[in-house]
């Protein structure tokens, strides 16, 4: 009956993961400023408050911008680098890959302050652009990891077959490489976007006066009366992210099973 014990353990573990997170939506509908039991009644006023919160909306806009740009740039860099190390025999490839993956092994705070020093030295202002650079450090290693796994399952003969069948390099990329890499590219975009969207510490050092959403939330956590609104925001982020992930999964499955009728 080892399986049964394990199964019960697994359920307990799920509870450990979910209960703290579920407090966010629960208290976001609670009709009280204080985050404590017993619940005092249902309200949607904290959500209504978000609609009128210009600072929050501005921060949200900033985070979306930073996230999108970071995701696109990181995935482009990840794509070229992953192709280089998997499909070409390069001397020193392992060392170069190790160097690119270095940010995985450096605490974020060190990445943040050292970039801050460089910007200071170069007399560059802190801005959303500097946040993007910082986030790319964190995201490129993720992107490369995802895409290398994809390239490794990629039969190089397919590109040669396309060339053999009369297509130039560029058309081969569009007709063979891109469609086959698409699930990996989408996964990389999603992962890097969410990482950037959620990143606090690097942005905290590099954003200057333009707050991203995590920085805005961080600021709100100091004011107890703002907490329910922050929880409402957190609940929305959670819902949207989960919907996004599930949509991506469904899209992926669709891609596999889609019957592709000839001509």
């Amino acid at each position: 009956m080892k399986n049964r014990a394990l199964f019960i353990y697994a359920l307990g573990y799920l509870a450990f993961l979910y209960v703290p997170v579920l407090f966010l939506p629960i208290f976001s509908f609670n009709n009280s400023q204080f985050i404590a039991f017993p619940l005092t009644g249902f309200t949607t006023r904290w959500y209504a408050g978000l609609g009128a919160d210009a600072a929050m909306q501005h921060a949200l806009g900033n985070s979306l911008k930073v996230g999108l740009v970071t995701a696109l740039l990181s995935t482009m860099l990840g794509l070229t680098a992953a192709k280089a190390v998997t499909q070409y025999r390069l001397r020193g490839a392992a060392a170069m890959l190790g160097f690119i993956s270095l940010p995985l092994f450096i605490p974020d705070i060190v990445l943040g302050i050292s970039l801050l020093l460089l910007l200071g030295l170069l007399n560059l202002p802190l801005s959303l652009a500097s946040v993007v650079v910082g986030h790319m450090l964190v995201c490129v290693p993720f992107s490369i990891t995802v895409l290398i796994a994809r390239f490794e399952g990629f039969d190089r003969n397919l590109e040669e077959a396309s060339a053999d069948l009369g297509e130039s390099g560029w058309m081969t990329f569009w007709r063979v490489t891109a469609p086959l890499m698409m699930p990996g590219i989408l996964a990389s975009l999603l992962l890097t976007f969410i990482t950037s969207f959620d990143e606090f510490l690097v942005a905290y050092f590099l954003s200057g006066t333009e707050a991203t959403l995590p920085i805005y939330i961080w600021g709100q956590l100091r004011f107890p009366e703002r907490l329910p609104t922050v929880l409402a925001l957190g609940a929305i982020i959670l819902t949207v992210s989960v919907a996004l992930v599930i949509a991506a999964e469904m899209l992926r499955n669709l891609g596999v099973k889609k019957p592709m009728v000839g001509a």
């Binding site: 860099l77 680098a81 280089a84 170069m96 160097f99 690119i100 270095l102 970039l115 790319m136 490129v140």
Partner: peptide, 22 residues
């Protein structure tokens, strides 16, 4: 291959190696 790898190396050199040195 090196050409494909170079943009990533350049970005990482500029945004990682240089700041750490600094």
């Amino acid at each position: 291959g090196y050409a494909l790898l170079s943009p990533t190396l350049a970005v990482m050199g500029l945004a990682l190696a240089a700041p750490l040195l600094l």
